[in-house]
């Protein structure tokens, strides 16, 4: 097992290397550069040139890449070009806790709701409850995040005044845990809805497959309680595909919440990503790309490890 993990980690290095080359090339290939937004009739082209020179943007792309890679290898993501003098790591660290908190809470929320419903649907397929769950799931998947978010803000926050309209905390107020939670509820819920819907569907189909297996029928015929058979013998096998899904969901922790973050003015990584992409703030984009790539690798690895935990037949 340990040697497997080590082997996988080593294999990830060329992969990450490839990702950085590719993303660097793609970003540079996009038209414009950080000076694109400085359009001012009294600003001479020479001023832009000076700016490009200052940030090494006039160098050939492979030189820029090597410089960047060298710094990155020493753990230095560089400084933002747009927010001059602000280290990229600082920008990211300011935002990362917000995004992680949001994603963690919404994922837990999604799991807590989706898995029980999925299991129940699988146990009683083609009943009213199953249909209700199915229809609700599809609605959840089909509802765009930003729309749902805005609707909730309009009704629950503006009209009823139950929730804050956005942000992570009340402005000009002292820290309070409840205030933080209060601000978290709506965005976490909105994010959870889509995940919830998908997870319910996956759980349902995976559990249905498992419940058709001979060993479940055997256990049932032995007279064990249904609940015990499903939860103890069925669930463990039924969860295996779900774990893969989780592994694949992990990378979305970084950028996946961008739209929700935008609607709720939630200062997270997703927003930073969008902002930097439009401003062509290369160092920030690259840092976030690398972090996402690392998350993809870790997510996959984690899924594989958890496989072994849940499925004794698998050994590495």
């Amino acid at each position: 097992m340990v040697s497997y993990i080590i082997r996988r980690t080593i294999m990830a290095i060329p992969l990450l290397f490839g990702i950085t080359i590719l993303s660097f090339a793609i970003i540079q290939a996009a038209p414009g550069d950080p000076t694109s937004l400085m359009m001012d009739p009294s600003m001479k082209p020479s001023d832009k040139e000076a700016f490009r020179e200052r940030y090494g943007l006039d160098e050939p792309i492979h030189i820029q890449y090597i410089t960047w890679l060298g710094n990155m290898a020493q753990g230095d993501f560089g400084d933002s070009i747009i927010k001059r003098g602000t280290p990229v790591s600082e920008l990211i660290m300011n935002r990362l806790p917000n995004t992680l908190l949001l994603m963690l809470v919404s994922t837990i929320l999604a799991i807590l709701i989706a898995i029980p419903f999925g299991i129940y649907s699988a146990m009683r397929p083609y009943t009213k409850l199953d249909y209700t769950v199915t229809v609700t799931s599809f609605l959840g998947v089909a509802t765009p995040n930003f729309w749902l978010g805005l609707m909730l803000i309009m009704f629950l926050s503006v009209t009823l005044g139950w929730f804050p309209t956005g942000g992570v905390a009340t402005l000009n107020a002292d820290f309070s845990l409840w205030d933080r939670i209060h601000h978290l509820i709506l965005p976490a819920f909105v994010l959870a809805v889509a995940d919830m819907a998908a997870l319910t569907r996956y759980t349902r189909s995976s559990m249905m497959d498992v419940l058709k297996q001979d060993y479940i029928r055997t256990a049932m015929s032995k007279g064990f309680k249904e609940k015990k058979v499903v939860l103890k013998h069925g669930l463990r096998n039924g969860m295996i595909p779900i774990i893969t899904i989780f592994g694949l969901m992990l990378p979305s922790f970084i950028g996946g919440a961008a739209i929700t973050e935008r609607v709720f003015a939630w200062p997270g990584i997703g927003l930073l990503f969008i902002e930097s992409a439009f401003q062509r703030d290369y160092p920030v984009i690259m840092a976030l790309t690398v972090i996402s790539a690392v998350f993809v690798v870790i997510g996959n690895l984690l899924a594989d490890i958890l496989y072994a935990v849940f499925d004794p037949r698998i050994e590495y």
Partner: peptide, 22 residues
């Protein structure tokens, strides 16, 4: 006494916040 310059990236969300007094 003070001015707070609040950043809300989404224009629709700004309107909602305006309506809610935020």
């Amino acid at each position: 006494d003070s001015v707070t310059y609040k950043i809300v990236p989404d224009a629709n969300a700004i309107l909602a916040q305006l309506q809610a007094g935020d």
